[in-house]
Every structure is written in structure tokens, then in C-alpha cells.
Design a protein around this nucleic acid. Structure first.
Length: 561
RNA sequence: GCGCCUGUAGCUCAACCGGAUAGAGCAACGGACUUCUAAUCCGUAGGUUGGAGGUUCAAGUCCUCUCAGGCGCGCCA
């Protein structure tokens, strides 16, 4: 039996031979023959596969595309999987395959189960996905949620495509923002005790209500003792308490959202281990860094950035960029073949210098991929909700999860390309109606489980797909469904190589849609036995593909709804 | 001023390395449950892909210009 994925490979080989033969005959050196590609035609009636090769070759061979296409077709060898070929449109060659693939795909899905669709694309390669990485200065908001979903799903997708994947959270626990957090908490503590003039609230401090909560907790734990000592002395207590408490909250929120990190990496640890220093030394030794105006600069312009960047300020303080260079050096030193950073789109100006850093570290520019997550426009009751951590006015991720549920939130984020702005309407996501795609997809799964329960109660087993008579699955809804299942492995590879996890969500939706259409048109149980058996196999194959797709997104596939 | 992202049906979004007739859902209208779950399905209607040029056999996709929205442009993070 030919594996589903191999049908296209098989066609491609036949096609390639024919193309080379024709090209050679017309005097075109094999080196100048463009790459032969097979694509999925957009429309029904244009076959299962198509190629544009005749159009590409028409010019160098000085012939008309359609004529050439005919010539190529006449040289393509026979194969039991190949039903017929057609020359269509401006010069496409359309391939129609025989029904053999229907059994092939059902067989593959049912037998491979949780491995159906897995790819070896990333085999033997290690990738790190770093995401969220929010400063521990406040709770996660919806924007972080989108980053968390995209990062986690991208990681899941790459795992499925054969990569060894590590999920990492970078904790920005060093620097100015952490000081501000400590000062803000300290100031609120004094304010609560009615002596706010003794510890004024810092400019640009964190104004959210949660800072009051932290201050009150310190007060409960320690009493008024921090009033008695100088501010510098009590400051570390406030900072440590605030940062640890907030980070714990972040961990809890992410756990609730179904996101698990393999590594929580502390920025502070880079300094403690001397890695920032050694990274700077590395750059200096290779002539990528120089001193000017009392500061240390990184010559990022040598790698395409539009200006050089400061690593160490003239006051001796290292910049955020310096620790980021050190961090990325450390990542590559850990042996990753690919490093993916998921950032908020407001950091896009940072991309060229980070890419420059990667090159200066002696890596390919593309060894670092940065996914920029566009802003989430949070809507509630039609009007926009502001989301700035500093102003303290935001809706937290937890609030959203409590309101709309984890699955709805994850799927909502998954249904958009990450570089597209996202309107997240809470009222809409919460509705258990057709508006909400996650219920639509989950309902398809619940229906499948229902069929399986019914079959079990009637003592009917799922037969071996090898015994299925493919000619019993010729209804348009059956073929459409089988075809969709067959595309799952392609979809994985495509999505993985584009780092486009949203494709999986769309696939799941389309698969559910094909299933619902099938379900409404045909009965699985209570029809003629051979047909029933064939359909049971098809349903089981659907269940496998749907479960696997949802598994990548970490969205539940419920047995009942 | 310079740079990045976005602009596709009334609304929210898809569209593979440039391919054939630009697809879904919602909203609107008309239909379908005596059966394995109607949170479903089927049908109708809806478009100059913001605009103008260009490259190409072929452009939503690439190039130039332009308009609109968002975001960046620090010895901040």
C-alpha cells in the first residue's frame, strides 16, 4: 500500500521523468529545467494535483504552454494511482487520482493514530521557542495571552513536525523596571499607613490596584516595621516580595491557560554567571564593539542595522540590549539549531539589531526567527478596553479565561495570523453559539464520540481499514472528508515551515465542517453492513485527524457536549 | 521626517514558492430533525482585494508612488 503522502511524490517522479525527457529532446540542458512542483488546485474539477511546469518551460523551449503540456502528458507513465490527466487553462496539467488513496488515507490514520500526520521535517534538530517573557511587574493581560497561545502552539506544531522543542520563559528580573516595582510597592505601603510623603510614588511607577494588594500583604506579614528603617534598607524586601508574588501569579495564570515551560530563565543569572561580561568580551575580541564618548558600542551597522547600538552606557550601566546579546549567545551555546522569539509587535524596531547580534555571534541570520504578535484590541460591549500596564487599567488574562474559558481563548488566538491585528470581543468569545468556532469544532468531535458509543453498544467494532471497499465511499461528502484527512500531513509540514500555527486551527475548522456535512447527509449505523463498516473507518480516521490537530493547539476534544 | 505591520463581502477573518472562477463564518433571506446530538446541514444574495502606475503568459501576492489605521525610531526597558 502506498502511503498517502507518497502519492504526490509518486506523481512527481513520473512527471519529472517526462519533463526531463521533453526538455532534453528540445535541447535544454537539465540544469536549466525549473523545479517541478505539484500543487493542490483551488477548485473542484481541477483534479487532485496540478503543475504549472509547462508554463514555466514554454519560454525557454519557445513553444506554446498548452502544446507543451500535451507533450509532457503523453510521456507520463502509467500507475494504478493515476486515473487521468488533463491540460487545462493557460497550460496547467491536472492530475486525477484513483480511489485507491481513500483506503490509503483511512488506513494510515486509523493505524498511526496519534502519530498520523507527524513529520520528520525537523528530525534531529533542536529548536527553542521563547515566549511571553513578560516582566514580573504586573499580571499577564490579554496581549500576553495571545503571545502565550502563539508561542505554545508554534512549539506544539514544531514538535509534531519532528523537532526537539524547548519552551522557555525569560524573566526580566534585572534593571530599572524591577526597581520601579519595588519603589511603587514601598510607596503604597507608606501611603496606606498615612505617611505617603516619606516615600513618594515614583515617576512612571506602577499604578495598578494590585500594587496596593502587595503592599497590604507586606503590611500583614511584617507589620509597620519598615517605617522605622531607611528606605534603602527596606526596599529589597518590597522588591523581592512584589517580584516573587507577581511571578507566582504569572506561573499560575499560564498553568491555567495550559502552557508549560521547560525552562524559566533569569536575566539576573546572566549577570551572576558573568555571561554578559563574556559576551561583551566576545564581541570586543572580534572587533564588533568599540568605545566612543565613554560608552561601549556594538557595530550593528556592519550587519545591516541602521545605527550602532550602545552596550554599556557612559555611566557604566549595561543596557537591556547587552543582556539580550548575552542571552542569545547562551541560547546558541546550548546547541539549538533554531531559536524562535515571540515578541509584541511594539518591539519590531528591535529586530534588526538582534539579527545583527546573531550574525556577529557567528550564526546564520535566519537561525533566529522572530514572531511579532500584533496587538489585541479587547472589546467589551462594543467599546475598546485600554491595556497599558503602567496606567494600571487593563483586563488580565485570568479574567478573560474565567469569563470565556481556556479553549475558547486559545482557539480565538489560534484563528488569526499572528501579524494581524486581533479584535477580541469578550461577549462574542463567551457565547456558546455558532459565532464561536471552537464549539463548532468540538461539537464535531463530540458527535464522532457519540457514534462510537452507539456502535459499541451495538457490539460493532471498527473494522480493519484494509478490508474496506473503497468503492463504497464515493459520495461527494465522503470523498471531501477523506480528502481533507489526507491533507493533514501536508498541512503540518506547510504550517511548520512557515511557523504558521493558525493554519492548524483553520484545518481543524475545515475538517469539522466536512464532517458535519457528511454527518447530515449520511448515516453511519443502521445502513447496509459493508457501507456501515466503510463509514465507521472514515469516521474513525476523522476522529484521529481532528484529535491530533486539536492536540497541537492544546484545545480539548470533548467526548460529550 | 524615516522604518515596520495592516488594509480583502455590511462585520470578523482565510488564500501554499506569483497560478485557473478570491474562500469561510457572522449578520440577511428561504429551506431540512420519527434515525448516530439541529451547538448541525442545504440553498440564495453579497467583491474594481484602499487607490494609481509597473513587472509577468499569469498579481490579493512582487516593484514604485499614494491614502488610511496601528506601532516603532534613546547612552529607556
Amino acid at each position: 500500500m502506498v502511503k498517502v503522502k507518497d502519492v504526490s511524490a509518486l506523481l512527481k517522479d513520473l512527471l519529472k521523468d517526462a519533463v526531463l525527457e521533453v526538455a532534453l529532446e528540445k535541447g535544454l540542458p537539465p540544469g536549466e529545467v525549473p523545479e517541478v512542483l505539484l500543487e493542490r488546485p483551488r477548485h473542484e474539477g481541477q483534479g487532485d494535483w496540478a503543475t504549472n511546469i509547462a508554463m514555466l518551460l514554454a519560454k525557454p523551449l519557445k513553444t506554446r504552454p498548452r502544446e507543451l503540456a500535451g507533450e509532457i502528458v503523453s510521456r507520463i507513465g502509467k500507475d494504478p494511482h493515476l486515473e487521468k490527466m488533463e491540460v487545462a487553462g493557460p497550460g496547467f496539467i491536472n492530475f486525477f487520482v484513483t480511489n485507491l488513496w481513500v483506503r490509503d488515507v483511512i488506513d494510515a490514520a486509523v493505524k498511526e493514530r496519534e502519530n498520523y500526520g507527524r513529520s520528520t521535517q525537523g528530525k534531529g534538530k533542536k529548536v527553542q521557542v521563547e515566549f511571553v517573557s513578560a516582566n514580573p511587574t504586573g499580571p499577564l493581560h490579554v496581549g500576553h495571552g495571545r503571545g502565550a497561545a502563539v508561542g505554545d502552539m508554534t512549539a506544539g506544531l514544531l514538535e509534531y513536525a519532528g523537532w526537539e522543542v524547548e519552551r522557555e520563559y525569560y524573566i526580566n528580573d534585572a534593571g530599572l523596571q524591577m526597581n520601579l516595582l519595588g519603589q511603587s510597592t514601598q510607596a503604597r505601603y507608606f501611603e496606606i499607613l498615612g505617611v505617603s510623603d516619606k516615600a513618594p510614588f515614583p515617576e512612571n511607577g506602577y499604578k495598578g490596584d494590585y500594587i496596593y494588594d502587595l503592599a497590604r500583604e507586606v503590611l500583614e506579614r511584617d507589620g509597620k516595621k519598615h517605617l522605622e528603617v531607611p528606605l534603602e534598607e527596606s526596599f529589597p524586601v518590597f522588591q523581592a516580595y512584589a517580584a516573587n508574588t507577581i511571578l507566582d501569579g504569572i506561573r499560575e495564570d499560564l498553568a491555567l491557560f495550559g502552557v508549560k515551560f521547560d525552562v524559566w530563565f533569569s536575566e539576573k543569572s546572566l549577570y551572576e554567571k558573568g555571561l554578559v561580561e563574556s559576551a561583551l568580551a566576545f564581541l570586543k575580541a572580534r572587533g564588533h564593539a568599540y568605545e566612543k564618548d565613554g560608552a561601549l558600542w556594538f557595530r550593528t551597522t556592519a550587519f545591516g542595522d541602521d545605527k550602532d547600538r550602545v552596550l554599556v552606557r557612559s555611566n557604566g550601566v549595561t543596557t537591556y540590549f547587552a543582556s539580550d546579546v548575552a542571552y542569545h549567545k547562551e541560547k546558541f551555546d546550548r546547541g539549538f539549531d533554531l531559536v524562535i522569539d515571540v515578541w509584541g509587535a511594539d518591539h519590531h524596531g528591535y529586530v534588526p539589531r538582534m539579527k545583527a547580534a546573531v550574525e556577529a555571534l557567528g550564526r546564520e541570520r535566519d537561525a533566529l526567527q522572530i514572531l511579532l504578535i500584533q496587538f489585541v484590541n479587547l472589546l467589551r460591549g462594543g467599546h475598546q478596553v485600554s491595556m497599558s500596564t503602567r496606567s494600571g487599567e487593563f483586563v488580565t488574562l485570568k479574567e478573560v479565561l474565567d469569563e470565556v474559558g481556556v479553549d475558547a481563548a486559545r482557539f480565538f488566538f489560534a484563528m488569526r495570523r499572528c501579524d494581524s491585528h486581533l479584535d477580541f470581543d469578550l461577549e462574542l468569545a463567551k457565547k456558546a453559539s455558532t459565532d464561536n468556532p471552537v464549539f463548532y469544532v468540538q461539537y464535531a468531535h463530540a458527535r464522532i464520540e457519540s457514534i462510537m458509543r452507539e456502535a459499541a453498544s451495538r457490539k460493532i467494532d471498527i473494522p480493519d481499514p484494509g478490508t474496506v471497499d473503497v468503492d463504497l465511499l464515493l459520495e461527494p461528502e465522503e470523498k471531501a472528508l477523506a480528502k481533507r484527512i489526507a491533507r493533514f500531513p501536508e498541512e503540518i509540514e506547510k504550517a511548520a515551515s512557515e511557523l504558521a500555527a493558525h493554519r492548524i486551527a483553520f484545518f481543524a475548522y475545515d475538517l469539522a465542517s466536512d464532517f458535519h456535512a457528511f454527518y447530515n447527509a449520511h448515516r453511519v449505523l443502521g445502513v447496509e453492513e459493508a457501507v456501515s463498516k466503510a463509514r465507521l473507518c472514515l469516521v474513525e480516521a476523522t476522529r484521529v485527524a481532528l484529535t491530533n490537530a486539536l492536540g497541537i493547539l492544546r484545545v480539548k476534544a470533548p467526548e460529550r457536549m
